[in-house]
């Protein structure tokens, strides 16, 4: 029953979306290209010449055993980590020299493997996601100038829509600290969406969720991609989810790309089976 009401709410949100969504998502997202990226941490090579390309509007999964370098790769993409060599370009813009907030302003949003939310309500967190899209500065906010207040009102309305889209509508004004694990994970997703991203980086979006929550999140990701046409880069251990959502899969092991292709190709790749699923495993596990 609860699911159905959320469903109804989100479909309502979708009909009103056309009016308020900012223009950014209407154009096709730019291509994200990672070329020969190498990252070293004091002797450990976390990424070793990794290359892949995320086609506009596709879902690209990065998989690999623990310590394969998936999260490091995300840190490079979002500017938190500078590679020793290699380039990352988003539609012609070189990202490796940019500060994280500049990359965010280009429309790259991410979630974290371990939840990183701030204190305050869900609304506060989502409005943080609107930071790059809003302008109100210290003076305008301190004096509560009409422009700043209007901006806040409009963006709050959009944040509410996104909350409903991700099934957080009922918790919009609740403190994040009081939410369940799955909901907090969704707050991160919603916050990333509040950036109106063109490329969305999801670091284990369903880790630790139960089956129903997983299904719901998978649905949201599929919806997003269909409706907003954004590119998604996904790191996930849940093979079922990866196989269902991904258009392309890149497999990392010890910082190297060991396989690349469609989910079906990757599933049959002997190298992947050996590295990822163990030597004796068969492809059936992956399904």
């Amino acid at each position: 029953m609860n699911d159905r009401t959320t469903e109804a709410r989100s479909s309502k949100a979708r009909t009103t979306e056309a009016r308020t969504v900012k223009a950014r998502t209407t154009t096709a997202p730019p291509e994200l290209t990672v070329r020969d990226v190498t990252v070293r941490f004091a002797g450990l090579t976390a990424l070793d010449g990794v290359s892949f390309t995320v086609a506009p509007g596709s879902v690209h999964a990065l998989i690999g055993p623990n310590g394969a370098g998936k999260s490091t790769c995300f840190n490079v993409l979002s500017g938190l980590c500078r590679p020793a060599s290699g380039t990352v370009t988003l539609g012609g813009t070189e990202l490796t020299r940019l500060a994280p907030h500049r990359i965010a302003a280009l429309g790259m949003a991410r979630t974290f493997q371990n939840i990183v939310t701030t204190q305050g309500t869900v609304a506060d967190n989502l409005m943080l996601g609107r930071h790059a899209l809003t302008r109100a500065g210290f003076t305008a906010s301190a004096l509560r100038l009409p422009g700043a207040r209007r901006e806040q009102r409009e963006h709050l309305a959009r944040a509410r829509e996104i909350a409903e889209l991700t099934g957080l509508g009922a918790h919009f004004d609740s403190p994040v600290g009081l939410l369940s694990y799955g909901d907090r994970k969704r707050v991160e997703l919603a916050r990333a969406l509040c950036l109106e991203p063109r490329v969305l980086l999801l670091d284990e979006p369903v880790a630790g969720m139960n089956a129903a929550e997983r299904a719901r999140t998978a649905e949201v990701v599929a919806e997003l991609r269909a409706e907003l046409g954004l590119s998604v880069v996904l790191v996930e251990h849940d093979m079922g989810l990866v196989m269902r959502l991904a258009d392309e899969v890149t497999v990392l092991d010890f910082g190297r790309t060991i396989a690349h292709g469609t989910p079906d190709e990757v599933r049959r790749d002997p190298e992947v089976l050996r590295a990822y699923l163990g030597t004796d495993a068969t492809g059936e596990d992956a399904a």
Binding site: H101, R110, G120, L128
Partner: peptide, 18 residues
């Protein structure tokens, strides 16, 4: 909100565009 985000997690603030 940006300042509170800096306090709670500098990383989260930075990737959200602060």
């Amino acid at each position: 909100r940006a300042l509170a985000a800096l306090r709670d997690s500098e990383t989260a603030a930075a990737v959200m565009g602060v």
